[in-house]
């Protein structure tokens, strides 16, 4: 099971954080800070795995990847494979790349909702359900369409209902 997905920039600002077990927000923030402090102390060109038992409890592992100004972090337990998780980060980044054509940190900052749509297609309740970025893209585009549709319908009736209420 995947326990958490995080993205943060090299200054430690979280850009996306998802914890698959309920956790109070204070605890979440504490974990994000804890992970960042470990990551920021790692030199370049070393392995992408971290022993993280002190933060997430026994039998938890962490893989991360550093792209430009961002860290992508996955925390998971013993029923996942470390290298497969590394691949999963790759899948996630590839998908985002397709989504935003050459993704950069700003895309992630301003597309909070879409980020979640992408992530939710790949990881479902802590389980990896989709690893093909084409499939993910299909679903995400479908969701965007639905949202846009519901919005465009909404504009007129909402104001009309507002006027009527008068």
């Amino acid at each position: 099971m995947i326990k958490a997905v995080m993205m943060m920039n090299t200054q430690g600002k979280p850009r996306l954080a998802k914890f698959y077990d309920y956790m109070p927000v204070e605890k979440q923030q504490e974990l994000i800070r804890g992970v960042f402090s470990v990551l920021s102390s790692r030199p370049e060109n070393v392995s992408n795995f971290l022993e993280i038992d002190s933060l997430f409890g026994v039998d938890s592992r962490l893989v991360y990847k550093h792209y430009a100004t961002l860290y992508f972090v996955l925390v998971f337990d013993g029923s996942e494979n470390e290298l497969a998780m590394l691949d999963l980060i790759q899948v996630l980044v590839e998908t985002l790349d397709k989504c935003f054509s050459n993704v950069c940190e700003l895309d992630i900052v301003f597309n909070y909702s879409k980020m979640h749509a992408v992530l939710d297609e790949i990881v479902f309740g802590g389980q990896v359900l989709e690893t093909s970025s084409a499939e993910v893209m299909k679903a995400v585009e479908e969701i965007s369409k639905l949202e846009a549709a519901s919005n465009s319908i909404s504009l007129v009736p909402k104001s009309v209902s507002g006027w009527r209420g008068r």
């Binding site: 996306l16 927000v25 204070e26 979440q28 909070y112």
Partner: peptide, 14 residues
């Protein structure tokens, strides 16, 4: 939506 954003990234209670 704004509230969930603040809760996830800035630790605001929701």
């Amino acid at each position: 939506h704004k509230l969930s954003y603040l809760a996830a990234l800035h630790g605001v209670d929701m």
